[in-house]
C-alpha cells in the first residue's frame, strides 16, 4: 500500500510545482491547496499503513485488545488540515485584494513595493498619502 501512496503524493507534488511556477496568482493558490494535501499524504504514509483495529480501548480494559492502527499521524494531519485551510482562505483573499488594487494576476508585473523606475513608485504612493491618519 505504501508504495502506491508514495507515488500518488509524488505526483501531487509534481502538479503542485507545475501550478506554482505559473505566472497566474490563482493557479499558484490552487498549487498551494494541493501542496498541503500532498504534505498530509506524506505524513499519513510515514505513519505506516496497516490493516488493524481502530485505536479504541474496551470499557474496563487498560490496554487495547488487538493491534491498533497508529492514531498519531491522523491527529497531526487533522491539525495540518485546519491550519492549511486557514492559510488557504487568507491567501485567496490576499490574491483577490491584489487583483482589485493592481488589476493583474501576474505577480511579476506587480512592482509597487520594489519599483523599477519612478512611474512604478508613484503608482504606489497614491494610497499611502491618503491613508495616513494619526491618532
Amino acid at each position: 500500500m505504501e508504495w502506491i501512496l508514495a507515488i500518488v503524493s509524488g505526483f501531487i507534488f509534481a502538479c503542485t510545482l507545475y501550478l506554482m511556477l505559473s505566472r497566474n496568482l490563482l493557479r499558484f493558490v490552487f498549487g498551494l491547496s494541493l501542496l498541503t494535501n500532498a504534505g498530509n499524504l506524506v505524513i499519513f504514509t510515514a505513519g505506516r499503513v496497516t490493516r488493524a483495529a481502530p485505536p479504541l480501548i474496551e470499557e474496563g480494559a487498560t490496554t487495547a485488545a488487538a493491534t491498533t492502527a497508529n492514531p498519531l499521524p491522523q491527529a497531526l494531519i487533522l491539525t495540518a488540515i485546519v491550519i492549511g485551510f486557514g492559510l488557504l482562505v487568507f491567501s485567496i483573499v490576499l490574491a483577490y485584494r491584489n487583483f482589485e488594487e493592481m488589476n493583474t494576476m501576474d505577480p511579476d508585473s506587480i512592482r509597487v513595493a520594489e519599483p523599477l523606475d519612478e512611474t512604478d513608485k508613484d503608482a504606489g504612493d497614491v494610497r499611502i498619502e491618503g491613508a495616513e491618519v494619526r491618532t
Binding site: L25, L94, A95, R97, N98, E101, M102, P107, I110, R111, V112, A113, E114, A123, G124, V126, R127, I128, A131
Partner: peptide, 12 residues
Amino acid sequence: GGTRPQLDGTLK
C-alpha cells in the same frame, strides 16, 4: 491598512 505597497509585499 491595505496600501498598495503593503499588498504587493504581503503577497510575496
